[in-house]
Design a protein around this nucleic acid. Structure first.
Lengths: 153, 153
DNA sequence: GCGGTTTAGTTGAACATTCAACCACCGGGA
DNA sequence: TCCCGGTGGTTGAATGTTCAACTAAACCGC
């Protein structure tokens, strides 16, 4: 039989609400800034970042999906758009005929380089500038704990 | 002239990446659970929650948008769907002829009541169970600071 | 009350995401 | 070799979100 619901106590409620609001507003803000200044949503920026950091600026679709925290389907659609924009190119994988390799074009790299300063500035202003060094450290530990907990179980 | 970019140092990078991953996976997980168990995305659940807590289970569209952290447009579309599902009803506002009042139906309330235990359980399992009491407290302070900083400026 | 500005809310189109279905290929075993 | 389950990736449809344009009504100053 199912256990009774462990409801949230008032403190937990307050924490959850605050977290929801803060993370929503933060991501909305950064997303809007990125859309305005670079013409792409944050998820697409993330894809370009991952490609730019990969050896040869290329990754297999699956690995890219993993790295960018995206579903396969989402990545397929996204890369199709990024390809249409000229920022990414697709190539066949030589060792696995099912595979596709996504690769960042020079134009894509240039776009990313142009977008990065503004975005980093936004992250700094909206996140790091608001918190004390101790809080930044706490946030890192909390986030790492959560990520491990979520992906582990 | 623009200042030079204040890039993120390695610690900040790590914090930002961890935060991005954790919040993304957390929300994705809760969203999928809610979609599966209650047939609605988290944003819609949030709308129903806000309505359920309002006096008379009703709110002006604008206030509901504010409370649920939604744009006007998004709320319009969302309420249209919720109305089609029979969970919300719209009425004209008696004091302002431009206004619309969204009101939670009994059916909507019942749906919410059925969905809540599972969702709360998810929040508890995926968030609170992973953190120490001290961390929960830290997360609350951090989130409140961020929310204030973001909505204040 | 008149005219301009702001506020409330909706709409449609473009875009993004999800879900399930699908094809092609890989690999392992009988 | 042939099958068969698993993997890599794409596709289309349904659903959500954004953005800009729009209507209507309230508000404000004169």
């Amino acid at each position: 039989m199912a256990a009774m619901t462990r409801w949230l106590d008032p403190d937990e409620q307050r924490t959850w609400r605050a977290y929801l609001t803060a993370s929503r507003v933060l991501m909305d803000t950064l997303d809007r800034e990125l859309q305005r200044e670079a013409g792409m949503p944050h998820a697409y920026y993330e894809i370009l970042v991952q490609l730019s950091e990969a050896p040869g600026r290329q990754l297999r679709m699956s690995q890219l999906a993993q790295a960018a925290g995206s579903s396969r389907s989402r990545l397929s659609h996204a890369v199709a758009r990024l390809e249409a924009a000229g920022w990414v190119r697709r190539e066949d994988c030589p060792t696995d005929r099912r595979g596709q390799i996504a690769l960042l074009t020079d134009e894509g790299f240039a776009t990313l380089a142009a977008a990065a300063p503004g975005h980093v500035e936004g992250v700094r202003r909206h996140l790091f500038d608001a918190l004390s060094p101790a809080q930044v450290d706490q946030l890192r530990r909390i986030s790492e704990t959560l990520a491990e907990h979520l992906t582990g179980s």
